[in-house]
Measured scan of single mutants.
Amino acid sequence: NQASVVANQLIPINVALTLVMMRSEVVTPVGIPAEDIPRLVSMQVNRAVPLGTTLMPDMVKGYA
């Protein structure tokens, strides 16, 4: 099963993503693939993302 990107903490809106904010985990439904974590660094989410939430492509500005 493919690992997805999961919030490692509350990720506020309009804050640049850092490695420490994200972890990889096998979850259902599948979200952004874990291998895209380096690409996500410095991008921003378009809504607050609670701890443990799977990041979906539509949550990250400029990802999709």
Rank of each mutant, 00 (worst) to 15 (best):
A64G: 13
M43T: 04
T54D: 01
I11F: 02
R23H: 04
V6P: 01
Q9G: 05
V60N: 02
G52W: 04
V45R: 00
R47K: 13
V5T: 07
K61T: 15
P57M: 06
P50R: 08
V41S: 02
Q9N: 06
L51D: 10
Q44P: 10
R23Q: 04
A64Q: 14
P29F: 03
T54N: 00
V5C: 06
L17P: 00
L19H: 06
A64C: 15
L51C: 14
L17D: 00
T28R: 04
Y63V: 04
M59T: 05
R47W: 07
G31W: 02
V30N: 13
P29D: 06
V60H: 02
S42H: 11
V15L: 06
G62F: 12
M21K: 00
P12K: 09
K61D: 09
P12I: 03
I37H: 01
A64P: 09
L51Y: 15
P50M: 08
S24I: 08
I37W: 03
S24F: 06
V5M: 01
Y63R: 03
L55S: 01
T18H: 05
A34S: 13
A34K: 06
V6H: 01
A48F: 14
Y63K: 04
L17F: 03
V30E: 15
E25R: 07
T53C: 10
P50W: 05
A64Y: 05
V6N: 02
N8Q: 11
N1S: 15
P33Y: 09
V27D: 01
G52P: 01
P12Y: 04
M22V: 07
V6W: 02
A7N: 01
E35K: 07
D58F: 15
S42V: 03
I37Y: 02
L51Q: 12
M56H: 08
N1A: 14
N14E: 09
S4P: 01
V20F: 15
A34F: 05
G62V: 04
L19M: 14
Q2G: 15
M56V: 07
T54I: 07
P12C: 06
T28M: 11
N14C: 10
I32E: 00
A64R: 08
A3T: 08
Q9D: 09
N14P: 00
E25C: 08
I32H: 01
N14W: 10
G52V: 03
L17H: 00
V6D: 01
R39G: 09
P38K: 11
L55E: 01
M59W: 11
A3P: 10
M56Q: 12
A16L: 09
L55W: 02
N46W: 12
S24E: 08
G62A: 12
A16Q: 14
V26R: 05
V20W: 15
E25M: 10
P33H: 09
M21C: 04
T53F: 12
A7F: 03
R23D: 04
V41Y: 05
T28P: 01
A34Q: 06
G31V: 02
P38R: 10
N1L: 15
M43A: 12
M21W: 03
L55Q: 01
I32G: 01
N8R: 09
M56E: 06
Q2S: 13
S42N: 11
A34N: 05
R39Q: 09
E35L: 09
L19V: 09
R47S: 08
V5F: 02
Q9I: 09
A7H: 02
N14G: 13
V60W: 02
